[in-house]
Design a protein around this nucleic acid. Sequence first.
RNA 1: GCCGAAGUGGCGGAAUGGCAGACGCGACGGUCUCAAAAACCGUUGGGGGCGACCCCGUGCCGGUUCGACUCCGGCCUUCGGCACCA
Length: 780
Amino acid sequence: MATLRKAPLPYDHLAVEQKWQHRWEADGLYRTPDDDPRPKWYALTMFPYPSGDLHIGHWFMYSAPDAYARYMRMRGYNVLFPMGFDSFGLPAENAAIRNQTPPGEWTYANIERMRRQFRSMGTVIDWEREIVTCDPSYYRWNQWLFLKLYEAGLAYRAEAPVNWCPGCQTVLANEQVLNGKCERSGDPVERREMEQWFFRITAYADQLLDFSGLIDWPEPIKLMQTNWIGRSEGVDVSFDISEYGLDVTEISTFTTRIDTVFGVTFLALAPEHPLVSRLATPERRADVEGYADASRRQTEIERLSTEREKTGVFTGAYAVNRLNGERVPILSADYVLLSYGSGAVMGVPAHDERDFEFAAKYGLDVRVVVAPPQWSPRDALDAAYVGREGTQVNSGEFDGLPAREGYEAIADKIEREGWGRRTVSYRMRDWLISRQRYWGAPIPILYCDGCGAVPVPEEELPVLLPEGVHFLPTGESPLKRHDAFVNAPCPACGGAARRETDTMDTFVDSSWYFLRYLSPDYDDAPVRDDHARKWLPVDQYMGGAEHAVMHLLYSRFFTKALRDVGVVELDEPFSRLFNQGMILSGHAKMSKSRGNVIAPDDYVRRFSADVVRLYLMFIGPWEQGGDWSDSGINGVARWVSRLWELCQRDPASLPAQGAADGALMRKTHQTIRRVLADIERFKMNTAISALMELSNELARAYDDGAASQAAWRDAVEKLLLLLAPLAPHLAEELWERTGRPYSVHQQPLPEWDAALAAEEEATLVVQVNGRPHQRPRRHQ
RNA sequence: GCCGAAGUGGCGGAAUGGCAGACGCGACGGUCUCAAAAACCGUUGGGGGCGACCCCGUGCCGGUUCGACUCCGGCCUUCGGCACCA
C-alpha cells in the first residue's frame, strides 16, 4: 500500500463504525418483522460460497445492494435483505483431502470468519434469518423437495451419456461444461454412460421461454436463456427401412426444413444410435463398429471442435424417402448428436452447410430443390443455399411453389400419410443433478433388490451425511465405502437395501434458498405459507451474469415445479434482476498467482468501511464492474475527510439572509433529484459525484459567508440523509454530532421540489449552422 | 461462424438529440514548511493566437437532422455467451 494516503481520517473511524454496528445490532434496527404494515420489499443478493474470506469482490458485490436496500427502507418499505452461505461444494472436500479436516469443520470455520467480516461492512442484513445450506435443517428440505419432484415424476433416474470430470471425480450438468471443459476445474470432460438422477426441466421449456411474468430483467440474460433452451419448430419425418425385416421399420429424423425433403441424398445416424450396428451389412460391420468405438473414445473437446473435418462411415444399408420413393444410403457420422432430435438427420447437401461439407467429402449427390432467386438448373452450387426464399424444384407435385408454402404443403402431406408430424425440438437437456461426491445433500433414495428404487419416507428426513469419514486422495466419495450409511432397511418391504450414495448438485440448494429466508426455523415445511404469500416474489434480485443459464434458469424451473406440486403459489422467483460487473485490479482479474489481490480488511482498517464501500460504488456503473486503484480510494477518503469537517462547521457565524441561498437551495433539490434517480438505477457512481458537487458548493457558500443559517442547516440535513444509504456509519455519526435524533436510518428520504430544482435563468445558445455562436458570458 | 454488450482526455468515468469531458484520479504551478509528506488554492482534451477568441476532437466510413457521443446503414477492435442443435 505504498501509494496510499498516509494521513488517516480526521476521526477514529474504527471506533465510530464499531459503535454504530453495536448500537444498530443492540436496537435490532435492521430486523425485518413479518407483521409490519408498511409495503414489503424483498431485496436479495446472491449468497456467497464460504471460501474463507470476504474478498474485495464480495465487498463490491454487496456494497451497492446494501445501499439499494437502505434506500428502499428510507423510501418507506419494510425491506427484507437477508444473507446466508451456499456452503456445500467441492472446495471443502478438497481441503478435507489435503489436510484431513472434516469438510463441515472447515466450512463452519470459514462461515464464522466471513460473518465477522460481513459485520465490519455495516450492512442492513437481518442476520436472524441467516441460512446455511450444509446444515441438516436446510438440506432436510432439499431432500423433501426432491421427494416432491420425484412423486410428481419430475425427478427420474436414467442411463444416459453424461459429462464426467476426471478432476472433480463426478458427473456434471450440461450447463456446467464450458467448451468441453469442466466449469469448475477446467479439466477436459469425458463422456460416460451412467445411470443418474435428472430433473425434468425440459418439461418446462416453453414456460421458461415465457418471460412475461418478469417486471425488469436485462434483455441479454433473457436472450441467453432463450438461446440455451433453443426451441426449434420442425417436422419429424420417417424413412422406410422395412426391407431389412427388423422389428423397427423406419428411421425418424427431425428437420426444420421439410421443404427440402426432396433433396435428401443420404441419411446420417449418430455413431451411438442403436440402429447403426443392426443395419450394418456384414461386410461393413467391422468398419461401422470401429467408427462407433473411436467416436466414443473422443473427449468432448475433440468431438466438439468445429474446425475438425466431418467424418462418417457407410453402413451398407439404404432407406426409402417416402416422398419420392428413392433409396438413399445410410451413413453413421459423428456430426450427428444422439441427444438432439432423434439422433438421425436427413442429409440435404444442397440446403445445409454441414450436409454439403459432408457430401463433398464422401461424394454424395447434391440436388437443388429450393431454387435460389436468379438460379438456373445448370448452375452447380459451390456452397449450400440455406435461404428460405426460393421456389420448389425437383420436388414432384410441389414444384413451382414458393418454399415457404412448400414447407406447409409438404408437412400437411406427411401428416396426412402418417409418415410423420410437425413437432418442436429443444437444445436444452434435462438437468443432471447426481454428484459422486460427499459434501452435498444425500439423495433420499434406497435401492432394494425386491422393490427397486424406493424413496426415503418423509418422516425419516433428513438423511444425514455421516461424520468422521475418511477421504482418499482420489476424491472418490467416502459414502460409497461407508457401510453404516449405505446399508439400511427397505422402507417398503423391510428387507436389506442400499442407500443412494450420490449427493445433489449444489445448484439444487441455491434454486430455492430465497424461500427459506422467509421462515428459516420452520419445521413443518420449507416455507410457511403465510410468509411466502407476504414476501414473494423477490422484488429485486442482484448478482453476477455468469449465472444466466445455471442458477437463474434452475431457480425459475424450481419455482414453477414447486408451484405445480403445491409448495408455493408463484410463477417467477425474481421480478427484477440487476447484474453487477466484475471488479479488477490493474486491469486484470484478481488472482493469487498475479499477485494483484486486494484485501479489503487492510483498507477498512486504514480508511473505514464507509470509504471502501463508497470507493467501490464510485469506481463506475455497478453493472460494468471496475478497476481498483489505490489512488482512487485516496480521493474518496479525501472527500470523506472534507465532509466530516464541513458538516460540523458552526453555522452561528452565518448571516440571517444569504446571497447564495437561492442557488444553494436549487443545488440541494437538484442533488436530491439526481441521487434518488441514480440509486434507483444502481448508478451509485453518479449519485456519489452529485453529493460531491453539493458538498463543494456548500463549502464555497460557507467560505463566502453567502449562505444563511437556515439554508445551511437545511442543505446539510439533506446531504446527510442522501449519504445515509451510501456511507451508513459516517452519516449516522454526523447526524448525531449535528444534534439530530437517532437514527438517520429511520428517517424518510428527502423530497425534491421541481420548481426549486429548476434553473432560474436559462442560457440561450445561439447556433449558426448547427454550431454554437457568440457564447454569452456566464453571469456569476 | 452465430448471438449479445461496449469503444469518449494521461486514467476511472459523465452527458442518450441541444455549450462533449460533470465528479474523481493523476500531472503541473502555487501557499504552508528548514525540507518533505499531508492539507489547501489554481491550471489541466489537442492545436493556434499577445489578446477578445479561432480551428480540430467521442473507434472508422457514410446517412438522417437546424443540430449527432447519442438515431440509421456498413466496417474495425475488445469483452461475454453459444458453438456441428439438423
